[in-house]
């Protein structure tokens, strides 16, 4: 009984380690330069459209609403201390340090990560990856690499757009609706937001999230069982594992950067 569960635990551990090893090899193989830089660029641009541009709507809409809610909640608290002038500072710092990188990463995992996994899993199931191999074209270079680079370029930009739209949403609610002074809103924000402390740290966070999400999504798709059930499992795993990774890594990075 007990020995059985130890055996099962060991097997799961080994399977997990083997999976991690395959994920590492996948990335190494994809990033190894293959003397085809000129051919990689158009593929990256196409994926930037699919992964980045097509995620814009959800990022802009969510950013707007999060900024508006943040401003509304912040106002009701700050006004109690007569500090509603600092609303701009509060909205901007929350977005740039935490909400921008984290929420846009969670949305990106759900919108783009799951789509990447499903797409690659289906390519595997329909033997498109095998037929690339037999055409002497390495699917790691043709399929995996452009998607990886597109993910890494897209997410930090999406996070920046998210924060910018969020600040505008905060302005809309705080200034245009609740009547905070617009000069104070911008001036206090400007004097309190630091370039390296806030903006660079936020950008580093979303870059790390981008690597993690895209890597998990590509690995899960490439490693999926080539069946409809296998692909649906892989897609779920991408969203769950990248969300957990984002939240865990965010805590660690916040502790290192601001702790």
């Amino acid at each position: 009984m007990l020995s059985n569960s130890i055996v099962a635990l060991g097997q799961q551990g080994l399977a997990y380690m083997a999976g991690a090893g395959r994920a590492g090899l996948l990335l190494l193989g994809a990033l190894k330069p293959a003397g085809r830089g000129t051919k990689l660029l158009p593929l990256i641009i196409k994926q930037l459209y699919v992964v980045g541009v097509q995620s814009l709507v959800i990022i802009v809409v969510s950013g707007l609403f999060i900024g508006m809610v943040l401003s509304l909640q912040g106002y009701t608290i700050l006004v109690g201390y007569g500090a509603e002038q600092s609303l701009g500072q509060m909205v901007a710092l929350s977005l740039l340090r935490e909400l921008g990188p984290v929420v846009s990463a969670l949305l990106f995992a759900g919108r783009a990560g799951s789509a990447l996994t499903a797409e690659i899993g289906l390519m595997k199931a329909t033997e498109q990856l095998s037929s690339l191999e037999m055409m002497a074209i390495d699917p790691l270079h043709q399929i995996i690499a452009p998607r990886f680079w597109a993910g890494i370029i897209s997410l930090p930009l999406l996070a920046a757009i998210f924060s910018a739209v969020g600040i505008l949403g905060g302005h809309l609610v705080g200034v245009d609706w609740l009547g905070v002074d617009t000069g104070a809103f911008w001036a206090i924000m400007q004097s309190s937001v630091e370039w390296s402390e806030d903006i660079v740290n936020g950008a580093i966070k979303s870059l790390v999230f981008a690597v993690v999400i895209t890597w998990i999504a590509l690995h899960k798709g490439y490693d999926a069982q080539p069946t409809s059930e296998g692909i649906s499992k892989a897609t779920t795993a991408t969203v769950v594992q990248s969300s957990l990774a984002i939240l865990g890594l965010d805590f660690v990075m916040t502790a290192l950067m601001f702790g």
Binding site: Q128, M134, M135
Partner: peptide
């Protein structure tokens, strides 16, 4: 292996066209 495969063509049982 990839260099050797340039001399091969394969028709897959499922076709495997790029969709």
């Amino acid at each position: 292996l990839y260099i050797a495969r340039r001399k091969m063509g394969m028709l897959f049982q499922s076709g495997a066209l790029f969709t």
